[in-house]
């Protein structure tokens, strides 16, 4: 792209807001709740509009002025009852690609997560930018590499419900994590993420819960809302408690339901362990999937006295009985 000639004009806000705004990616960010209006608001309140909006004329009609950068200023001016705003116009002859590159340059600082990169690529595609241009120019500019295959993956991510995309962005999920979420049905994602504000979720935990709930729904033939409205699950969300505790409770409830056999055996093993093997100078563990038939005993010994104590405890009848019971489950 070469240097562009500019001209400045005063444009009626009513015309700007009445026409379509094809380059309005920042309006999409607003929809996702990612429109940070704090700093420009305070700056605009104290200093007013110091720089004109960047726009492009796409025809002679006054409503065919398309803003490339400066939507926050437009909305602020409109909310303050101003009638017009200064616009710097790029040449009407610039290509679509060049216009989108200007939008990209203005929004680039926002496109810091895989979710938003995906949303931007989808915005380009929906706006009619050719796939070839997206792959060769914009994916390169987003440091994703010019791959059609990768573009397909990003477009799949962009198809996630807005709440999910917003969550993925806020948690900084990698493209792979986002893609894993896109495997789930929209209904489940919406039901789950509409409750995510009450949970304390990492990417891994969100994935685990969604996978397990998805299996439960398919196995039992129930809908996501039916699941979340079941008394046991609804209570978890109604209880006044810390998000972390609520998340742990949900995780336990889901695990119990997904793994009825495994959790029941685990409970019996834990009981036997508590009764016969707890509070000793050694720790007892086993493979929680119950695949490997082995009990692991571990201990740290700091003195010969502690070692003798350990030996005595290992020799006790209760220890043998505990080990025997645990092994009978494996």
């Amino acid at each position: 792209m070469q240097g562009l000639p500019f001209s400045v004009e005063e444009i009626r806000l009513a015309d700007l807001l009445a026409g379509s705004q094809p380059y309005a990616f920042s309006l999409y960010l607003k929809k996702l709740g990612l429109w940070d209006d704090k700093w420009p608001e305070s700056s605009l309140e104290s200093c007013g509009i110091l720089s004109p909006v960047l726009a492009k004329k796409s025809g002679k009609n006054p409503q065919s002025v398309h803003v490339l950068d400066g939507f926050k200023r437009v909305y602020w001016a409109s909310s303050r009852g101003m009638a017009s705003i200064s616009c710097v116009f790029v040449s009407g002859s610039i290509s679509e690609y060049e216009a989108w590159m200007i939008v990209f340059a203005a929004q680039k600082h926002m496109l810091c997560s895989s979710a938003l990169k995906a949303a931007f690529l989808q915005h380009l595609e929906k706006s009619g930018v050719s796939r070839e241009t997206i792959v060769k120019k914009f994916m390169e500019a987003l440091e994703l590499g010019p791959s059609e295959h990768l573009l397909k993956k990003y477009l799949k991510i962009a198809g996630l419900p807005e709440k999910v995309l917003s969550f993925c962005h806020s948690k900084g999920f990698s493209a792979k994590r986002c893609l894993n979420l896109s495997h789930h049905k929209k209904g489940l994602l919406e039901s789950f993420f509409s409750r995510s504000h009450s949970l304390s979720l990492s990417a891994r935990l969100a994935e685990e819960l969604l996978n397990d709930i998805n299996d439960i729904l398919r196995r039992e033939g129930i809908s996501p809302e039916e699941f979340f409205c079941e008394p046991e699950i609804a209570k978890i969300f109604q209880d006044r408690t810390d998000n972390r505790i609520r998340t742990e409770r949900l995780r336990d409830a889901v695990r119990k339901r997904k793994f009825p056999v495994l959790t029941s055996i685990e409970r019996q093993m834990e009981k036997a362990k508590q009764r016969l093997l707890d509070e000793r100078s050694f720790r007892v563990s086993w493979d929680r999937t119950l695949e490997n038939r082995a009990i692991n005993l571990s201990a740290s010994v700091k003195s010969p006295r502690e070692f003798m104590q350990l030996v005595r405890e290992l020799e006790q009848k209760d220890t043998l009985e505990g080990i025997r019971i645990l092994l009978s489950f494996l």
Partner: peptide, 22 residues
């Protein structure tokens, strides 16, 4: 198909199977 939604664990060979008691 609901075959993948059953109570299964991931084994050491990276394959899901029904839990051992089942």
């Amino acid at each position: 198909s609901t075959i993948t939604a059953q109570e299964m664990i991931l084994g050491d060979d990276n394959k899901f199977r029904y839990v051992r008691p089942v």
